[in-house]
Nucleic acid binder design. Structure first.
Lengths: 241, 241
DNA sequence: TTTGTCTATATTGGATCCAATGAATAAAAA
DNA sequence: TTTTTATTCATTGGATCCAATATAGACAAA
């Protein structure tokens, strides 16, 4: 996957998600190509791919712009993620987990427990939690044995703030964030319990509600808009997608 | 949208969904370009777009092939469609429909009623039902005011047999098909009733179950595999997407 | 002063050219 | 006869060239 063309896509995706390219900013082929040190061809292809991913929107005849995401769209995306991951949890429960999946989920749960055992949380802890959380969700989606779920999620996954791959938190209020993420992690336990007991409906309901834990991010996001850079965003971009 | 480049994409999509290009068939850039009377450039772009749509899969270094869709994948897609359209119905109910949306849905319901009033159904009727059905679902998705739903569906929409845009039926058993589609249409009535009374949960449950009416298609699909061309597929390709 | 039209320029889309890469086949050696 | 290696050929990816187009700016007229 280290082909130059793929790298252009990854790089642009990264620049958008990290905010290096501002939302609403216009993007033309030639300057972008020069900036990345390639010709227009791979940039053209990348723009079209990113448009399909929903990160860029086409302006008629004048290239592309970084998609403007409204708070309503973020909320909508989170709802969508909720039902899709809820379905994944249900189907995972109906299929029963493999031995290795059970082991990995248990390991991830334990990893989270250790973070919260201290009674407080640091930024570094949140980075670890972030990776753990992302993997936890991924395992369940895999365990659903329904590839259409991952496909349907792929759009949302690339939307900043709506995906599990983005985690926002308030640097100045880590005590509150401790409670928020601790609660989310308890839901992880509940989901695992439901899945491993074959309780599909229960697993679905918890997972769907669990997505709402992300709604907190959206709130924080809008706060950031006003009071400028009060909070922090971790973003794991999956370069292989 | 009648730009030549867009037409290449639409044409290829059409050829794939109609079966003109067989599932699993390898597709190279040069022959395809010659066949369509364009250069390689628009074809290259089209291939990548269609790959993201899930209609083509990339073979390492040797171009693309028409995606093989297993029956399990179709079932999975239908489940996904169920939860997404279920969510759409719920949110439509929570938002309350606009005047024009209500009018259009009522019109579509009536249109369907007239088809089934005769007590039997013809192939031509099914073509009308197909358009009506597609529009009915589309209006509800719009009424959800959640653009993420349509985005998440877009992948599935392009999968043959899993989308509302494809309708399969058994030509030789129209009496049975009458009962199947009549039942599906009664669900349309129930969904509308729930939405217009603001009953979000009910609307969601009915819509989710309604997706399973499509499962019949999947069964028919596998029958076709065996006994060859016993059934018929209507496919409305949305060329503007 | 404002509006409409025309022209010039910026920019995308398509075609073609060249390089890189991987697969297939043929030839040679074991 | 089989396996391994080398060479050729098919095919994709990137760069550049050319044409089509739309926007912006300038100039003229009302």
């Amino acid at each position: 996957m280290s082909k130059p063309g793929q790298q252009v896509i990854s790089r642009l995706r990264q620049m958008i998600l990290s905010g290096e390219l501002e939302s609403g900013q216009r993007l033309a082929e030639i300057p972008t190509a020069e900036q990345l040190g390639v010709s227009r061809t791979p940039v053209r292809i990348a723009f079209r791919n990113l448009e399909q991913e929903g990160l860029l929107t086409k302006l008629s005849g004048r290239g592309y712009m970084v998609r403007q995401v409204t708070q309503a769209e973020i909320s909508g995306s989170i709802e969508v993620r909720g039902v899709l991951e809820g379905l994944a949890a249900r189907q995972a429960a109906e299929n029963t987990l493999s031995r290795s999946q059970t082991a990995e989920l248990l390991h991830l749960l334990k990893q989270g427990d250790e973070l919260f055992a201290k009674g407080h949380i640091t930024e570094q802890d949140l980075a670890i939690y972030h990776d753990m959380n992302q993997r936890f969700h991924q395992v369940i989606i895999e365990a659903s044995l329904n590839p259409a779920i991952a496909e349907a999620l792929s759009r949302n996954e690339h939307l900043p703030f709506a995906s599990v791959s983005a985690l926002a938190f308030d640097r100045n209020n880590l005590a509150q964030e401790y409670r928020r993420f601790n609660f989310a992690h308890m839901q992880h336990h509940a989901v695992f319990d439901a899945i491993s007991h074959g309780q599909g409906s229960r697993a679905e309901a918890i997972m769907r509600e669990h997505a709402n834990a992300t709604h907190g991010y959206a709130k924080i996001f809008s706060q950031m808009e006003e009071s400028g850079e009060k909070m922090h965003v971790l973003n794991n971009v999956n370069a292989t997608m």
